[in-house]
Design a protein around this nucleic acid. Sequence first.
DNA 1: GAGTGGTCTAGACCACAGC
DNA 2: CTGTGGTCTAGACCACTCG
Lengths: 255, 255
Amino acid sequence: MNHRQATGPDNTLQPTVTPLDTAPLYQRVADRISNRIYDGHWRPGETIPNEFALADEFSVSQGTVRKAMSVVEEAGLVVRQQGRGTFVRKLSEERSYFHFFRLAHPQGERVTPEPHTETVFKRQANNHEQSSFGINAKDSVVVIERLRLVDGVRATREHVVVPDSLFAGLADFDDALPQALYPFYHQRYGIFVLRADEYVSAITADKKIATDLKIKINSPTLQVNRTAFDMKDRVVEIRTSQFRADLFQYNVNLS
Amino acid sequence: MNHRQATGPDNTLQPTVTPLDTAPLYQRVADRISNRIYDGHWRPGETIPNEFALADEFSVSQGTVRKAMSVVEEAGLVVRQQGRGTFVRKLSEERSYFHFFRLAHPQGERVTPEPHTETVFKRQANNHEQSSFGINAKDSVVVIERLRLVDGVRATREHVVVPDSLFAGLADFDDALPQALYPFYHQRYGIFVLRADEYVSAITADKKIATDLKIKINSPTLQVNRTAFDMKDRVVEIRTSQFRADLFQYNVNLS
DNA sequence: GAGTGGTCTAGACCACAGC
DNA sequence: CTGTGGTCTAGACCACTCG
């Protein structure tokens, strides 16, 4: 039972039992729990064993499991509910949608677009994609191009690139892809998008953009470049989107 | 010492000692600590009494103070340093700067602009300002208008509005205001900006903007509308900024 | 070495969900 | 009623900072 204390019941004063890993115990427990989620040992939506059971299994106190679970919760992998249990987080439409989709009307309400057209194909990775995804020149990527409507009007244009290696068979997917891609990534490929960097710029529409969005060439347009990271902090998606600047603002809450 | 337990040393089985306030104890302690910071009892940079001293004063265990302090830390009011102590947070240039100033070069590095011109004056609050700040039609606001340079070129234009009631004497300030306003708000007025909502839009430069930024009329321009909140969640500043879209992107990290 | 925050344990009780 | 996570305590020891 005693792991770090030097005051064991026998007086041999052994310093500790194989410290080696210097990280706090709760951190190591948090890692083991996280890994079980990554490798699918516990699936999204599933109930995790309760704190005492885990404490028993890992031979630590319930308080340590508790602290570890806080770390895992903060990382966004689980949800705790008093009286019910602790559950592996499901990336819901709601979360992925309003967490990562930051468009708002000029008045401030958030926007919900509808799908319009979609093209999916595979090609070789370019230099930027190779370095971002950590893949080779020979490796291919899957490109998803979409137009979306808001109130029946073409409003957004998305260019999504993911590495073929992580998303096997995506290019040959039969049906239309779901509206929200991140829950789909999670359910089908076990890839959980947890954070993203975005760069917002103001550009003037070129011919292609103008045609797609049915606006005049040189109209002011919002462009968002996103790099998305999964729970292992790998780059898993590179996305470029354009939006009609007369219809939308990009909203963010800083804290 | 015992506050909530019903199993006191004497067997009278009194339920609890004046619960009334139903919030968890650590939360109530966190509130008391926060209030001491708000009202200046402990000043920015000052060391807070250690956990055992506070536990003693509040008649709770050190573990409870510890948990309370985590809450206060998460709220951004204090900084804890192992081996040294716990300190009331100072809003440093660095924090306010790179936390709230989200501009980046197209290549990605963050931008640091230099001051150029500054105008400060007082006027009546308009409708939007009245409702945002919760003030009356008769109340006045202070307006700060600034141009800033990047690499010697006019690059950003800021229009800052704050309520006169919270910022007494600001309009009559003699010297130029400091580069970073939020540390100044904090030091001089005790107002600690903790979060902000921002709306980014792509506009075309009108005559005024074009003149100020020395760009052509109708040039694409990034506009950021910010509403800033202090630690008591009051709206304390409304800011509208324009940036040359050819020089900058707006960067944000979502998680 | 003294003092601080950080970790860990063991055990009690509370609040909530659900049968 | 039972089981879950949430709160609280008391006390030990660890890791770090600083004089």
